[in-house]
């Protein structure tokens, strides 16, 4: 009985300390923490393709509201124009020209969305690669799926969604909204004006937001990684997790970032 009472007393004391710690000391606000584990995979250097076949599609925007590009093992270049035409230059990459003869880029339109992908259906990416150079009318919604390569977006106006892996992603100058889901590689989102949703794993990323009317509202979760930059964030650091939130200006535009096993450098330009 004596032992039980002593044990219960010790457990009760520890429970009080535990609750107090959770309530008042955890997470430690404003403390900067460094991850104990850093894991990163740079894009794989794929085999050099010796042959290529290019197809060019020029379409009036008309009733088209969105564009979907599915590529891999190549390079994607995307930018907005003031015109009303959509221009897609698709290049299939392969070892030999004979091999390329079996493949072609397939265009399809459905419910106002036009999409480009490698055909025929049995085609697989490790055999060949697919690059795009695209000009879209401003304001269009664009989705890019790309793996093992690079994606470069410049002066984009509209709604952009990037689904990438093992790629170097660079977006320079965007007005509208941006959504990025990326695993492995590196991501640079520069001069972004507008809402941002960014999910990332196993890569290093840099985000530079341009000051906008209404400002930004930040929600950032970094697991097993680091968070740096000049964004006005209030950080809560646990052992391997950083939760941060804050507002810039009136906090109108949401900026939601979730990153694990990587680093996030979040800044607001002057």
């Amino acid at each position: 009985m004596k032992i039980r009472r002593i044990t219960l007393a010790i457990l009760a004391l520890l429970t009080v300390l535990f609750v107090a710690d959770m309530r008042y000391f955890q997470p430690r606000r404003g403390r900067s923490g460094q991850p104990s584990v850093r894991f990163q995979v740079e894009p794989s250097r794929v085999a050099h393709f010796h042959a290529e076949k290019t197809q060019v599609f020029t379409r009036p925007q008309g009733s088209l509201s969105s564009l979907m590009l599915s590529g891999a093992l190549g390079h994607v270049e995307l930018r907005s124009t003031d015109g009303t035409e959509l221009v897609v230059r698709a290049t299939i990459l392969g070892e030999t020209e004979e091999e390329l003869a079996r493949f072609e880029v397939v265009e399809s339109v459905s419910n106002g969305e036009i999409s480009y992908k490698l055909g025929p259906q049995t085609a697989q990416f490790p055999e060949v690669g697919l690059s795009f150079a695209v000009e879209v009318p401003a304001g269009m919604e664009v989705t890019v799926k790309h793996s093992y390569g690079s994606v470069e977006v410049e002066d984009f106006v509209g709604f952009l969604r990037l689904l990438t892996s093992f790629s170097q992603v660079t977006v320079t100058g965007l007005q509208g909204s941006l959504s990025v889901e990326n695993q492995f590689g590196s991501v640079e989102l520069l001069d972004i004006s507008g809402p941002l949703a960014f999910e990332d794993a196993f890569s290093n990323s840099t985000v530079l937001l341009s000051p906008v009317d209404g400002g930004y509202n930040f929600q950032v979760d970094v697991t097993n990684g680091s968070l740096t930059g000049n964004a006005p964030l209030e950080k809560e650091v646990r052992q391997n997790m950083i939760k941060a939130q804050g507002t810039h200006g009136e906090g109108v535009h949401p900026v939601v970032i979730e990153s694990s096993f990587g680093s996030v450098n979040l800044n607001i330009g002057r």
Binding site: Q34, V37, V41
Partner: peptide
């Protein structure tokens, strides 16, 4: 496997 893999561990926290 891939020359781009970086996997580092700082044991102080453990």
């Amino acid at each position: 496997l891939d020359s781009g893999i970086v996997f580092e561990w700082h044991p102080a926290g453990q």
